[in-house]
Computed example of a mutant assay.
Amino acid sequence: MNPDNIRIVLVHTTHPGNIGGVARAMKNMGLHRLYLVAPASFPNEQANRRAVSADDLLDGAIVTDTLEEAIGDCQFVVGTSARERRIPWPLLDARQCAARVAEASAAEQVAVVFGREDRGLTNEELKQCNLHLNIPTSSEYSSLNLGMAVQIVAYELRMLRAAPEKPAVETENWDTPFASRENMERFYTHLEETLIDIDFLDPAAPRQLMSRLRRLYGRVRLDEMELNILRGILTETQKWVERDSKD
């Protein structure tokens, strides 16, 4: 595991104190890369008070306007989700997820994304993630503070780092870097355009086709060479469609 490759991303955080609580939880467990997507109030003295001795994480926090900016260069993205989705997505608990994050971080940029305090991440935001993380809680009271949720995930990562035997990295000797989130988004746009061109996808009634294809490719995880091959196939397909329309 390489903590330098792991970032914690907070999306549209409402309460600045929660940002400070997250910074403290991260520093407790040896994580230091904090990204904030359009926070309601930051910098803020309340955040610094809650951070206690983790002011350096707040000082180094990267603030972006969109989630896409925060995870664009990442190859592996985990989104926290507290509820079932219409289309099931690969879903792990904190311990299982930590193992996947630790594995990927050995050679890739990894983001663990936490949503709004009141409603979490939107469906569109979750579609940008390779897998979803759920922290099981009691059915009698399932509400988790944002700082607590980050602490649980960070703790599981810390335990893996402290273990005498680290998990094997199945992609350690992979010959090509995995595709970044930014390049994957370009691919999905290209794929959708091509499917419309060949009349496979009706933009007026798309149903869940693109969501299911996102889930498919997110589960497989493409490297940059594989992505370029697929983009090339899509480009040639569009050329054939254009030639056919002129005949």
Rank of each mutant, 00 (worst) to 15 (best):
I135C: 14
E117S: 04
W240Y: 09
P88G: 04
L146K: 08
R100Y: 07
E185D: 14
E185G: 08
V110A: 11
V150A: 14
V11D: 03
L157A: 07
A61R: 11
R219D: 15
E125F: 06
R119G: 15
P90A: 00
I233Y: 06
Q208K: 05
T64C: 15
S41N: 12
D93K: 07
K239L: 14
A168P: 05
R161E: 15
G30K: 01
T171S: 12
P177M: 12
E172Y: 09
A61N: 05
A61S: 07
K166I: 04
T66R: 08
N44L: 06
N145C: 12
Q238H: 11
M225G: 12
D73N: 09
H15W: 02
I152F: 00
V241Q: 06
T171W: 11
S105L: 01
A70R: 10
E193A: 04
N44H: 09
L131S: 10
D244C: 07
N5R: 08
T237Q: 10
L227I: 01
V112W: 04
Q46P: 02
N228Y: 05
V11M: 06
L195R: 02
Q238P: 06
G72V: 02
A51F: 09
C129K: 07
E182L: 12
L34S: 04
R116D: 10
Q128Y: 00
R86S: 08
F42M: 02
S139Y: 01
I152K: 01
N48I: 11
D65I: 00
H132F: 13
V220N: 13
S81F: 05
G17W: 00
D197S: 06
H12G: 10
P177F: 09
P164G: 12
G20N: 11
V9M: 03
E165I: 15
N123M: 11
R85T: 07
P164D: 15
D197T: 08
I229S: 12
F76D: 13
G72R: 00
V37G: 03
P16Y: 03
G21T: 06
V220G: 11
A23W: 01
D202R: 08
M26P: 05
N134F: 10
R24K: 15
H32A: 15
E236P: 00
R83N: 12
N44E: 10
S142R: 04
L31Q: 08
E185I: 13
F42E: 03
Q96S: 07
M148L: 14
N18L: 01
E103R: 05
Q238A: 12
P16L: 08
N228S: 13
V153C: 06
E68N: 10
T66H: 14
S139G: 09
A149Y: 03
R161W: 11
P167E: 12
G120V: 02
H190N: 12
Q238K: 15
I62C: 13
L58S: 05
S53P: 00
V78L: 13
L133E: 02
I62R: 11
Q96A: 14
L67M: 06
T194H: 02
N134D: 00
S41V: 06
Q46R: 10
T189D: 14
R24N: 11
H32P: 06
Q109V: 09
L191E: 03
I6E: 09
I8S: 04
M1T: 03
